[in-house]
Design a protein around this nucleic acid. Structure first.
Lengths: 192, 192
DNA sequence: CGAAAATTTGACATGACTCAACTGGAGTGG
DNA sequence: CCACTCCAGTTGAGTCATGTCAAATTTTCG
């Protein structure tokens, strides 16, 4: 199962099997039951995790008490409050499993030690972080200039599994629209 | 004038006057006349620059030929196509001076050499980059959940100079609304 | 001064929201 | 295992924010 993590590393850096096994010792397997929280606002454990199996959503709670989903993650993606992780501040996000989910978690302190021992690993995370930045830039641009129906179409096209495994209500929040609107968008797309 | 750059460094790292002077040699002063481009799509010089004086906007050109402003920068901010810079790809952005602007430019190659000599400098840029990411996250969230009038109010509150020195048409594009809408928003805010 | 661009204003269209009611399926407890 | 509850999803009606198109006005700049 942890093969998935090794494969993810190999996509961006080179890493021997032996080194991987050593790194893996600092990653803690954990299961998150459906509808339970992996992270909640105010928590201070600066942990990030790699998803081996399952689905997860990350969201903020607005002042008005609205859940604002900002990430939908499936297998082979990382989750965590990057803001809190980088700034070493308490978490602002909530992260909830949408299915029974298996993850490999690592905390920031261990990670920094691993950076010293395996500089490639720091490279891996820097690339991951850069990609996250670029992805956010593109989402921002799309949110300002691309209509919701098209954003939904592209999301599903790039990641069909999200359409099948994530409840509509959370996809709507991720796209920044109401569930009613997304329901109508789906109806409209189905007709064509 | 280059004092501004030194001050910016000191906000995040410690750096001796002597080291700064050495670093400064790799930064090239340049003036960009109002309404001329510092960067245009397809250019390959992976350069980023620090603004000493003036105003600048960065934008993408959509398929439909619409200019989509994604950054408005005044003194003491960095400009450049971060995406192209990080990926070493040709630029996708345009960057234009809105006033006669004085910058200090550094190219990626020199910067990497400076990283080796002054590790603090790499730290400075990593922090800068992280902040850019966080800022983009917040803008994304706001674009999805905060109405345009409120986004404008907050922008002006945080940076009053933008309201005075940047033409309405570019602020509107930055906020993702039409100039007509922003004009009405201004009228509405003025009445209160 | 005069042309070109930016800004404002009006009229109308449209996409998305809110509120409300209804439907159907998943999960729960007896 | 069934009946019940609850909640996600759907649908309809009315409203509002923002967009589009067009024209008038103001500002900028050669």
């Amino acid at each position: 199962m942890s093969r998935l993590l090794y494969q993810s590393f190999l996509q961006h850096i080179s890493l021997s099997e032996e080194d991987f096994q050593h790194i893996l010792r600092h990653f803690h397997p954990r299961t998150i039951k459906k509808k339970t929280l992996f992270l909640r606002e105010g928590m201070t454990t600066t942990t990030i995790a790699f998803i081996l199996k399952g689905t997860v959503r990350a969201y903020y709670l607005s002042d008005a008490g609205i859940e604002q989903v900002n990430q939908l993650a499936l297998e082979q993606h990382w989750i965590g409050d990057l803001y809190a992780f980088l700034k070493s501040e308490p978490a602002r996000q909530y992260i909830e499993a949408l299915e029974d989910t298996e993850i490999l978690a690592v905390n920031g302190h261990d990670l920094e030690q691993l950076y010293d021992a395996y500089p490639q690993l720091e490279r891996y995370f820097r690339i991951l972080f850069q990609n996250a930045y670029i992805h956010t830039q593109q989402r921002l641009n799309a949110s300002l200039h691309v209509p919701a129906i098209e954003r939904y179409r592209q999301l599903i096209e790039r990641n069909p599994a999200i359409g099948l495994r994530v409840p509509l209500i959370h996809i709507a929040s991720y796209l920044g629209i109401t569930p009613e609107s997304l329901s109508r968008i789906r109806k409209q797309l189905a007709q064509v």
